[in-house]
């Protein structure tokens, strides 16, 4: 199982990234645990300057953009 963390305050784009990630997990056939992190200090602790951000197993994969399910899928395989 992969731990996926979505960093963001909860704006529509953050929600879209979460939905795309869940769809990507289905496409990849990978079991994921999705965690939303909205606390600004916790977000900053990742070294992230912009949100939304996507973190997979502790590694920041994307910052400041909403990746599509197709873009996220290979990151989960």
């Amino acid at each position: 199982m992969k731990l996926v963390q979505i960093l963001g305050p909860g704006c529509p784009k953050c929600e879209k990234l979460k939905a795309n990630t869940e769809q990507a997990a289905k496409l990849a056939g990978t079991e994921v645990m999705v965690e939303k992190i909205s606390d600004i200090n916790q977000i900053a602790a990742f070294g992230v300057m912009m949100v939304p951000a996507l973190v997979i197993d502790g590694e920041v994969k994307a910052v400041g953009k909403v990746l599509s399910p197709e873009e996220i899928k290979p990151m989960l395989q």
Binding site: G8, P9, K13, I40, A44, M49, M50, V51
Partner: peptide
């Protein structure tokens, strides 16, 4: 304050 900005 933490320097984080939204994509918006």
């Amino acid at each position: 304050a933490a320097g984080v900005s939204c994509q918006c």
